[in-house]
Design a protein around this nucleic acid. Structure first.
Lengths: 234, 234
DNA sequence: ACTTTCGCAGTTGTATACAAATTGGTGAGC
DNA sequence: GCTCACCAATTTGTATACAACTGCGAAAGT
């Protein structure tokens, strides 16, 4: 059996999809932003047709919303609506260590060490966008701890549905930097706890650790958002 | 706020999608079957363009596989590969009763009674295709027991990824009718247990019941499939 | 007889012209 | 000055012509 031809059409499709998804989740395209198919077609040196396939998928996943005659708009996100996605993510986090766990190899451990270094550097510099990127990379590394592919796909999908909310919420606050510091510190603890669990060769413990951190991180966010909304009303 | 315009383009898209998905899962389009975009376009009185959007989604979900220059082919299914999806479905079954449970209204109970009648009738007639349809309807009713929409979406998606396997596996056996009878009886018990759990107003019990039945039903299938493979080798 | 090459038929992928829908503004009417 | 109707610009949705690719078979060469 030879290599799969890799069908560069499909490869390009995946590349554009990943690119746009990342832009949306890092708020390069903030909620409400209108994307023009023709602009994207020009940027990626193609026609509207392949672009439309990418946009259709992003729409199916809830990141975009196309309206005939108007445009393709980045969806807005509301923390109350997203709380359901979080509830589910919290449950799935535990499954990652339970369903077909994959002991990490040395390459993976090395990547983890690198990330820890990036995190330490981040703790002193406090760059929100860089935090979001690190968080994303860490998540995708964690996914490699399970060989259950549907679980990986679904977890990733839900991750990208929720991850924008932190950046968006925090950017509205004046104590933005305080929130970020708190979050980076919490993330640092999560990485440390995950590494300890991995070292003790207990992947289900990784699940418990991540579940706990996801829960606290979400309720912290929820509390902030609600206090903000209350302040708006008054 | 008035009614959403319902954008009949999107409604048609959803309709065609649901139609083709059902055909694939009832084996009207068996694994390996080649679909021609132009035929489908003609059947649904449209052009290839909207059809291609539907096919792209079915491909993303693993039910189809498009190859440039060859055709769009219904994917084959292998029970060993699908066991991962089953593992996940088993875990999610329990969540349906746990995350935002929705007490069933009278209309839903009536539908359940109707299904029970269909099931009883089925037990005497033994029609595999009708069994698959009833199973599908029952599953979609169960989904209404949770208001957690992402959980609903994901559970549905995984259901349609796995449901063909029973029909496909069973149809290869000469004791096909025995298998079907066994399966219908098991399904009948599942419905009864679910209704008992609902009557006692304990939706998390529904989850446990369904988890248990899904587990046994899958291992039964797995055992059959493996004994068959072994017989092939000898 | 076997192998290899070439070409044709058939299908999906891409580009593009056109249709349909919405928005915003402009001007007539009051 | 205000309202309403209508038109034009803009953008997504659809249809279709064409390009790219694959598989198969025929035919030529050995």
């Amino acid at each position: 059996m030879t290599d799969i031809p890799a069908s560069d059409a499909r490869a390009r499709y995946e590349r554009i999809y990943a690119t746009l998804r990342k832009r949306i989740c890092l708020l390069d395209y903030p909620p409400g932003r209108r994307l023009r198919e023709e602009d994207l077609a020009e940027e990626f040196h193609t026609s509207r047709t392949p672009i439309r396939r990418v946009l259709a998928r992003l729409e199916d996943e809830g990141l975009l919303w196309s309206v005939h005659g108007v445009g393709t708009i980045v969806t807005d996100i509301d923390i109350e609506e997203l709380s359901q996605v979080y509830r589910l993510r919290i449950e799935l986090a535990e499954l990652i260590g339970k369903l077909m766990p994959v002991p990490p190899d040395q390459a993976m451990l090395n990547e983890l060490f690198e990330m820890e270094a990036r995190c330490a550097e981040l703790a002193s510099r406090l760059d929100a966008r860089e935090f979001a990127r690190l968080n994303m990379d860490f998540f995708q590394l964690i996914l490699r701890l399970t060989a259950n592919e549907p679980l990986r796909d679904i977890s990733e999908r839900l991750y990208f549905q929720t991850t924008r909310i932190w950046l968006k919420t925090a950017s509205r606050f004046d104590h933005y930097r305080d929130m970020l510091r708190l979050e980076v510190e919490s993330f640092q603890r999560e990485m440390r706890d995950v590494m300890l669990a991995i070292e003790s060769a207990d992947l289900s413990a990784v699940g418990h650790v991540r579940r706990a951190h996801l829960t606290t991180s979400f309720s912290r966010l929820l509390a902030e958002a609600r206090s903000d909304k209350k302040a708006d009303i008054n």
